[in-house]
Each structure stands twice: as structure tokens, then as C-alpha cells.
């Protein structure tokens, strides 16, 4: 059990409907403390992986495991607790325009049950971690894109999560601000946080020198490790290697009991 990967996707498929597939049998492993880029064009499935890992949707088939826990078995009422272990940085920042920087972070803290005094104590330290403390009293509209993204990252850190998922964190930024954000993520990773970043910015990825999972059309195309070594994906493409004829070094995996026909939003408030 000790050697089990921190995050493991096993033949994960996500079908949004009969014609649109988000993922087509993705198998990847991510170790604790790793920094991984999910790289690919729009529609390649990288954001779908982020959504699966944050329990916003369930896989249609296959198994997603986070910290030894199968995400397909997570009950709706357990999702809030699970999300407190995961910091999520959405692509659009998701900041409240009528609240100042510190209030944006404080609001999220209050929402998860922190008291006012805890907010007063902890917010400066969180803002300091992402170098935005000096703009604590500014409104989001007064900030640059990079600064807004830093606030979004700060908000994702309120629960001090061991895993940070960032969906296109540099998507709306110029090169200089993108570097700034990636550097912050690298610093957080150096402090022990596992980071998964979905991005289409290849140049940014190359500069970071971290593990890259290249995706295309819902499949893993190739993996590049931190040293630049290229590897074949864990799960061969089904059209190249039909399931009926598994590779000699690869055992066919059983279907999960939780397989469902379409992805289900994993919102805890749907099934109340």
C-alpha cells in the first residue's frame, strides 16, 4: 500500500453523451510531491481529468484513485471533505469583484467554517505565500491578470491542501505573468504540495522542466519525464491494441462495479 501512487487513473473513460467523449481509457499515475503538466489542445481531455480528480464528475468507466480512495465510491456528502484536501484553481480565477483581495480569501475560509479571528490571523500568511500581500486591499478589477491568478491560488491554499489542481492557470496571461505563476506553483511544489496543471502552453511547460503528460482526443499520447525522457503511455491506445489482445507485460484490468453509462456530476446537493 505504501508504494501505491498518490493519484491513479486506470482506464478512465468519461462520455459526456453518446457522441462526445471527454476521456477514452486514460491510465496515469502521479506520485506524492510530483509536479505534473497535463498538456494538450482544447478538447484533449486535460480539464476532464481535473474535473474527475476534484470529484466534479464521475468516470463513466474505469477507476480514479486519490490518496488510496476510489473516487467513484465517494458519496455526495463526503465530497466537501474530499475537496478540502484539494486546492482547485479555476481557469477564470473565480474572484468576487465586490470583495477585496483579502476578503476573497477570507470569504472562502469563512465558507469552510473558519472564524473571523482565524481569517484575520491566517489570510496575511496565505497571501504572502503567493506574493500578493501588498495588494490585500485592492479589488480584483484593480489587479493584473497575474495578480488575479495569484489570488485564486491563494484561495485554493486556504485548507493547506496536499494537492493543487490548476486548470489553465496561465491561459489568460502574457509570458511574463505566466512565468510568475509557474514559479509560484514550483515554490509550492518545493514545499511538498503535489501539483497538477492542465495547460496548452508548451513553451511554459518546457521552461518548467517537470513531468509532462501529452494528451490528445481524450487519450494519453506520450509522457515526458522531468529529465526529458520520452515514454509510451501506460495504457496503449485501444484502436492500436484492441482490449481482446492485451500486451504480454500487461494484465487486463477488471471493470469496476461503479461503471455507469454517462458521467454524473458529483455535486453533493443533487442527491439530497
Amino acid at each position: 500500500m505504501v508504494n501505491d501512487p498518490y493519484i491513479s487513473l486506470r482506464k478512465v473513460e468519461v462520455a459526456y453523451n453518446d457522441y462526445v467523449a471527454g476521456l477514452r481509457g486514460v491510465s496515469i499515475n502521479i506520485e506524492r510531491g510530483e509536479f505534473v503538466f497535463l498538456c494538450g489542445q482544447t478538447g484533449s481531455g486535460k480539464s476532464t481529468i481535473i474535473r474527475v480528480l476534484s470529484s466534479q464528475i464521475k468516470p463513466t468507466k474505469g477507476e480514479a484513485i486519490f490518496d488510496g480512495r476510489p473516487l467513484t465510491l465517494v458519496k455526495p456528502e463526503e465530497i466537501p471533505e474530499l475537496r478540502r484536501k484539494i486546492g482547485i484553481v479555476p481557469q477564470d480565477f473565480g474572484l468576487l469583484p465586490n470583495k477585496k483581495v483579502w476578503e476573497n480569501v477570507g470569504y472562502a475560509m469563512r465558507a469552510v467554517g473558519r472564524t473571523k479571528s482565524e481569517v484575520r490571523e491566517q489570510v496575511p500568511a496565505i497571501l504572502e505565500r503567493v506574493n500578493i500581500l501588498q495588494r490585500a486591499d485592492a479589488y480584483p478589477t484593480e489587479l493584473s491578470g497575474g495578480e488575479q491568478q495569484r489570488v485564486a491560488i491563494a484561495r485554493a491554499l486556504i485548507n493547506n491542501p496536499p494537492l493543487l489542481l490548476a486548470d489553465e492557470p496561465t491561459g489568460n496571461l502574457d509570458a511574463a505573468h505566466s512565468d510568475e505563476i509557474i514559479n509560484i506553483l514550483l515554490e509550492l511544489n518545493a514545499q511538498g504540495t503535489t501539483i497538477v496543471v492542465a495547460t496548452h502552453d508548451i513553451s511554459q511547460v518546457e521552461r518548467a522542466g517537470k513531468r509532462v503528460i501529452l494528451m490528445s482526443a481524450g487519450r494519453v499520447e506520450e509522457e515526458i519525464d522531468a529529465t526529458g525522457g520520452h515514454h509510451e503511455p501506460l495504457e496503449p491506445r485501444s484502436d492500436e491494441n484492441p482490449k481482446e489482445t492485451p500486451q504480454p507485460d500487461q494484465e487486463p484490468e477488471p471493470q469496476t462495479e461503479t461503471s455507469v453509462s454517462t458521467p454524473q456530476t458529483n455535486d453533493p446537493h443533487e442527491n439530497n
Binding site: I79, L82, R83, V112, D267
Partner: peptide
């Protein structure tokens, strides 16, 4: 929508949202 989404993303429980 924006506030509710943030609550959900950071792990606010059902009671806090509803």
C-alpha cells in the same frame, strides 16, 4: 452563482451552501 461555486470548490458543506 459565483459565491456558491467558490463555496463548493473550497469544500463548504451542504449546510453552509443551503
Amino acid at each position: 452563482r459565483r459565491e456558491l461555486r467558490i463555496m463548493e470548490l473550497v469544500g463548504a458543506n451542504k449546510m453552509t451552501v443551503q
